[in-house]
Design a protein around this nucleic acid. Structure first.
Length: 424
RNA sequence: GGAGAGGUGGCAGAGUGGCCGAAUGCACCGGUCUUGAAAACCGGCGUAGGGUCAAACCUACCGUGGGUUCAAAUCCCACCCUCUCCGCCA
């Protein structure tokens, strides 16, 4: 959520930004509703003042003055109730509009849609095969690594069982990522896999809308999380932090659940797009200025790159275009790993995503910071990034490390946890 | 799941209808005193919105949301959370 005053004082910039991001919002309505609300607040404050004054006279008033004062107080109460009711309506409308406005955008982010992302650089080499490489689906079948039928039987399409060395591979990826993040100064967490809707909304998800990506639990205000970003960011909801403790760097291991509504009909073979996966996520709270959050953002991207470099995978780093940023991100970098079995002759597939959300999430989650020097508080900046998203990382490893005889070499950094050099 | 207790400022803790945005203590900041420190004493010490050159001042906030009342931290209802005991359980 953007600051209301900022929206109204920079309406043209905000409108332009919405357009670049492909979001249709009525900024003028926000301005109008804010004015209406402010007027009501002013009137309400004045009536409340009169009400208090009247009430305070009653205890010391004589018996004959009392009825008139009580009557006056009653009238004031009615007026105040009327104003409060209208104010509530206006504020609901205002909030509904305001929350649809996306974050502002980094000036260097490319403008456009998914295809307009700019490639920052490439790393590593595409593997050369002197045979026709299989995709991860066939490789998994060959080595009995994933049971899709059982997944479908038990939970439906989009669910799966990892089996045998795939289990070890997933655990190894998790271990590798957690060790890396611990060494980078992150505080490690396992997190709840459910969260309150208010937390989901604070992070920027719509738990129960028509196009929701979220599974919600009936008769409760809980939903299954789509990422630990939700629970890591929500962990400090309503807290005021001391700036000298910032930045705070959290890492979280969680399951992620996504309905993938609207994604049907796309290529669904394998575990590229599934309803549940395991992920190690980074999250950071920084001081309230871009210099700090941009620096941490660069650091998060660096860590993601180092993880994929250590895994020996070829990838490209892209700077996501405005239309693909979503609501909260000010800037977003994705890592797309080379997947030899994807599409026709291989293609890049998104494996990580790192966003600087500036104060957009913090405002709605009410996460502030204060310093001894300055009076008052400010909203922190929040950032998030993927360390390892297991399903996608497994695809990349299986497909890139396959050999002519069908076996799969285990990347060296994972061997201590997988316990073998070669699968199959 | 059953029974009970409770959620008040950074912390502790008073406050059961009006003079309470809230006593007191601790912590913290500034000052006096001191060679320095401690102690003692004096003053300050929440967040948000409005207002002002700046103040004064006004409004809201005592877990959250409703309600009763001229008036709510205080009474009523619902929910959330914490603690204790019992039961159950990986």
């Amino acid at each position: 959520m953007l600051d209301l005053q900022f929206i109204c004082e920079n309406a043209d910039d905000v409108k332009q930004n919405c357009e670049a991001r492909g979001v249709t919002v009525d900024v003028d309505a926000v301005i109008r509703l804010r004015e209406e609300r402010n007027k009501l607040v002013g009137e309400g404050d004045e009536l409340r003042r009169q009400q208090k004054e009247t009430s305070s006279q009653i205890p010391k008033a004589s018996a004959e003055d009392r009825p008139a004062l009580i009557e006056a107080g009653k009238k004031l109460r009615e007026q105040i109730s009327g104003i409060e009711a209208r104010q509530k309506e206006i504020e609901a409308d205002l909030r509904a509009e305001q929350t649809q406005i996306p974050n502002m955008t980094h000036p260097d982010a490319p403008i456009g849609g998914e295809d307009d992302a700019s490639e920052v650089h490439l790393s590593g080499q595409k593997p050369e095969f002197d045979f026709e490489p299989l995709d991860h689906y066939d490789l998994a079948a060959k080595h009995d690594l994933i049971d899709f039928e059982a997944g479908s039987r038990v939970a439906g399409h989009g669910f799966y069982y990892l089996k045998n060395d795939a289990v070890m591979l997933e655990m190894a990826l998790v271990q590798f990522a957690l060790c890396k993040l611990r060494d980078e100064g992150f505080t490690l967490h396992t997190t709840p896999d459910l969260a309150r809707d208010s937390v989901l909304e604070g992070i920027g998800f719509n738990p129960r809308g028509d196009e929701t990506q979220i599974y919600s639990v009936n008769d409760s205000d809980l939903s299954l999380v789509a990422t630990a970003e939700i629970t890591l960011g929500g962990a400090l909801k309503d807290q005021t932090l001391d700036v000298k403790d910032l930045p705070l760097k959290f890492a979280g291991l969680s399951h992620c659940f996504r309905t993938e509504a609207g994604a049907h009909g796309r290529k669904t073979r394998g575990i590229y797009r599934v309803h549940q996966f395991t992920k190690v996520e980074m999250f950071a709270f920084t001081g309230p200025d871009l210099e700090q959050s941009n620096a941490v953002h660069a650091d998060i991207v660096r860590i993601e790159e180092e993880i994929f470099q250590a895994l020996g995978l070829h990838y490209r780093l892209i700077d996501t275009a405005t239309g693909d940023l979503g609501g909260p991100a000010y800037r977003k970098f994705d890592l797309e790993a080379w997947m030899p079995g994807r599409g026709d002759g291989g293609s890049y597939g998104e494996v990580t995503s790192a966003s600087n959300c500036t104060d957009y999430q913090a405002r709605r989650l009410n996460i502030r910071c204060k310093s001894a020097e300055k009076k008052g508080t400010q909203f922190v900046h929040t950032l998030n990034g993927t360390a390892i998203s297991c399903a996608r990382a497994i695809i990349a490893v299986l497909e890139n490390y396959q050999q002519k005889d069908g076996s799969i070499v285990v990347p060296e950094v994972l061997r201590p946890w997988v316990g073998k050099d070669v699968i199959g």
